[in-house]
Design a protein around this nucleic acid. Sequence first.
DNA 1: TCAGGGCGTCAAGAAAGCGTCAGGCCGCGT
DNA 2: ACGCGGCCTGACGCTTTCTTGACGCCCTGA
Lengths: 222, 222
Amino acid sequence: MMRVLVVDDDPSIVRTLQINLRIRGYAVDTAVDGAGALRAALRVRPDLVVLDLGLPDMDGLAVLAGLRSWSAVPVVVLTGRDDHAAKVGALDAGADDYLTKPFHVEELVARMRAVARRRLSGPSGVSAVRIGRFLVDVADRTVTPPVRLTPTEWHLLEILVRRSGHLVTHRELLREVWGPAYEGSTNYLRQYVTQLRHKLEEEPSRPRHLLTEQGVGYRLVP
Amino acid sequence: MMRVLVVDDDPSIVRTLQINLRIRGYAVDTAVDGAGALRAALRVRPDLVVLDLGLPDMDGLAVLAGLRSWSAVPVVVLTGRDDHAAKVGALDAGADDYLTKPFHVEELVARMRAVARRRLSGPSGVSAVRIGRFLVDVADRTVTPPVRLTPTEWHLLEILVRRSGHLVTHRELLREVWGPAYEGSTNYLRQYVTQLRHKLEEEPSRPRHLLTEQGVGYRLVP
DNA sequence: TCAGGGCGTCAAGAAAGCGTCAGGCCGCGT
DNA sequence: ACGCGGCCTGACGCTTTCTTGACGCCCTGA
């Protein structure tokens, strides 16, 4: 049985999620503030955390950091529509995915499943994924059928493959491939994402695997 | 955990290997003579054997034969630099790979990994590959139809053949052929890769087997 | 619906990596 | 001593890759 901890200061949201998730077979614990969330997480050791960033007593990012200091539990973050900075910050701080309010429960469940599945496949992530008609093997540095990729293209693709299905922020990609000094230059990403799409997507202008998350980053879905 | 049996009559070599292999996560048993080696092999059933051919009490080949009479365990043989006959004999007797003393521990580990991997992937041991109209046999050190290769050319080709299909980095090639001090000088590689292509490729300027992976290394595809 | 920022795409110059050639050095056998 | 084959080395031009700026479209939020 999958054990989920729901953290939100709005009791009606907590109740709604609790009911809907239980119907779907999850064991649900709840908390309405940051301190309670950390206590509950320590006590019940949830398999997954749904965390609202807009808590009354402490910053959602602080809760996330507190969690991450001792646990690798998957976290799905809830944000307000405009809280863009918090959203990106949460992902950089180790959140696994996010959802903007208001949202449909089905969508949350879908994200939860995706996140949980991803964690199962090990901390080092996957090394090979199928992208359309291509098989990309990061360990072997091969694509079949053969496609020529430049070093930078490989570097970028490798990160996305290792975290396939997972949203990776602009900052993470830039820092990893070009270094910390380039964290603002998304034009590099635009350039190379375009190139990768032209080499790996059937319709580069209508990507089905290398997806854009506007204002946040990119996500590779097999 | 991979269990390795190290057999050598020189205690200092045994000790060095024991320490270095344990650091790298192998479980290590040791023996200092042939009789002990066979006893140990029977007892611990190692996943891999590192066997020195110059043992005091019995011929290394006899040990290998004894092993092979009941086990298909991968064996990496250690030989003196000039002991060419013994080396060839060992390969004929069922050794999987050899290394001449003195050697770097990293190289031994690399060979061990390669041998273990080869065993896993079935009988596709890469000691011989077809390159265009040539058959390159690393174990025999022959190319048919005959091609004259210089020692350095052969050394380079041997590494690529043993790992055919896989990417080999500049650094690995340089370290293997010229030594660790030359890891930055890719101009050596450029020179000798060109020579190999002129001897083995139909169109040296349009290589179809000895391929460049820009910025990274080379890959030999049969 | 409109404005603004984010994004995809293109093109061109700069930089880096690579293949190739030629010459010098050294050790070997004659 | 001499020629030869193999190795080392630097130089050159070419190709690939990276960088950078510009432009127009699309999505988002007001």
